[in-house]
Amino acid sequence: MTAIEEINLTVNGERSTHRVPVRMNLVDFLRNELGLTGSHVGCEHGVCGACTVEVNGACVRGCLMLAVQADGLEVTTIEGLTASGRAGALQAAFHRRNSLQCGFCTPGMLASALEYCERGGAADRAAIREHIAGNYCRCTGYQSIVDAIYEVIAAEEAQ
C-alpha cells in the first residue's frame, strides 16, 4: 500500500493543497501533478542538475527532495522565475550568446546561474564555472554559458 500525505505548499506564488505518495520526489510532483514541465528529470541521483529548482529561495535538486518534504515551503520553478522576470536578463543573455542547443539543461542552468548572480557572485569566469559545475550540459561545452552569465554580471557591475 502506498503511503500518502497531504501537503500545503506555495509553487510560483500560488498556494495549494495536494495529496502525494510519500515516495514521489519533488520534480516528479512539479512535472506530473502540476504540469510544470520546465524542470527536467535527468539522472535522478543528484549529479546532472537538470531538476534544479528553488526551495525557500535556495537552489536544490528536485530529485533529491521528496514532494512531502516541501510541505509548508515555497517552491519556484523556471516557470516562476520567468513570470516574475527574475531570470530575464540571464535568459536574454543565453539567447544572445547561443548558450543552449537542445535546452535540456537550460532551466536548471538558469536557476543555478541566477543563484550565483543574486548572491553577488563576481564576474570571474573560474568562479562562474565552479558554481555551475553541478549542472551538466552535453551540447555547448559551457563556453557560451559562462559567457552569458559573465555578461550579465559585468553589465550589472558597469551600471
Binding site: 543528484g46 535556495a58 537552489c59 536544490v60 535538486r61 533529491l64 565552479e130 558554481h131
Partner: peptide
C-alpha cells in the same frame, strides 16, 4: 566546504 559537491547540494 568548496570541495563538497556543488552549491545546490550544499544548500541542503
Amino acid at each position: 566546504l568548496p570541495h563538497i559537491a556543488h552549491a545546490a547540494i550544499r544548500n541542503r
